[in-house]
Design a protein around this nucleic acid. Sequence first.
DNA 1: CTTGTGTGGTTGCATTATAAAACCAGATGC
DNA 2: GCATCTGGTTTTATAATGCAACCACACAAG
Lengths: 156, 156
Amino acid sequence: MVKRTSFEGDDCPIARSLEQIGDWWSLLIIREALFGVRRFGEFQGKLGMAKNILSARLRALVDHGILATAPASDGSAYQEYVLTPKGRGTFPVLVALRQWSEEFDDRPEEIATILVDRAKGRPVKKLELRAEDGRLLGQGDTMLKPRPVPRRRSAG
Amino acid sequence: MVKRTSFEGDDCPIARSLEQIGDWWSLLIIREALFGVRRFGEFQGKLGMAKNILSARLRALVDHGILATAPASDGSAYQEYVLTPKGRGTFPVLVALRQWSEEFDDRPEEIATILVDRAKGRPVKKLELRAEDGRLLGQGDTMLKPRPVPRRRSAG
DNA sequence: CTTGTGTGGTTGCATTATAAAACCAGATGC
DNA sequence: GCATCTGGTTTTATAATGCAACCACACAAG
């Protein structure tokens, strides 16, 4: 088979997440959804993507439990696509991507928006990775360990 | 033209970052690079990907300033691919993806590794988004604002 | 310097995904 | 009932992906 390699059974959590949201459109669909977009036509209009692709992506996102379909809130017989908790959980990913662009993009002046604290209207700080004791961690302060095997009562 | 839509001129920073690292392989290549992988064959062996695809991806990553080529450190005439600061700046993105998998994956028991604080060997905390004054922010506590136009001396 | 082997790719071909546009069914509006 | 809008599916063309084969150069042995 020559189909696109799937990371579904991979043991790397990054590969596993890319399997679900690692394509060109999914994260943009989720981004719109986070800002309240719910209807097919609304996604299509905002993102300017082909309808068949949008259709396929929405179905995949629903299959992965990132979006769920719901009856339209305006009383019409159409349906809507709403984020599940898993879908809303992608927010840090989107923030990380945004901040990476803001910091390293070659033409940052083309970036149209900034993410601000709603209460104060001030830009948010960079995402912080901390240790259990609160120390700020960079990449070099971390390492990977094998996941501990979950304890089973049978073995004692 | 029917080619894959490019987000290069898009004004959304998320789209812009996806343009550079939003494909299936780039982030995995960067992940390996963060763990010290530098040689073509080493990437190919660890990721199990086709060599032509790897070749194309490495070239694109170099073009985008995420990787740089350097003479091999072992004295041989071959070259190596090393992360630039921009490349190392993707670390929060990878952490966010990892944590999303850890929290929402349907089969988390298949995840082989955990990210730990090197000093203590303890798992890291979840990425935190904070306001300037230190308040912890969720998605609902944020909003997008138009980017302020940079001040130019000529017009003023 | 000739042969052999490993590294680091490129090329060719089959398959799959993406894109645009045409088409279509059901809901809605008049 | 007829036109139109919404939310798709189908059709067809092009681009990306994946595998395998091939190739060039570095390096080593004889």
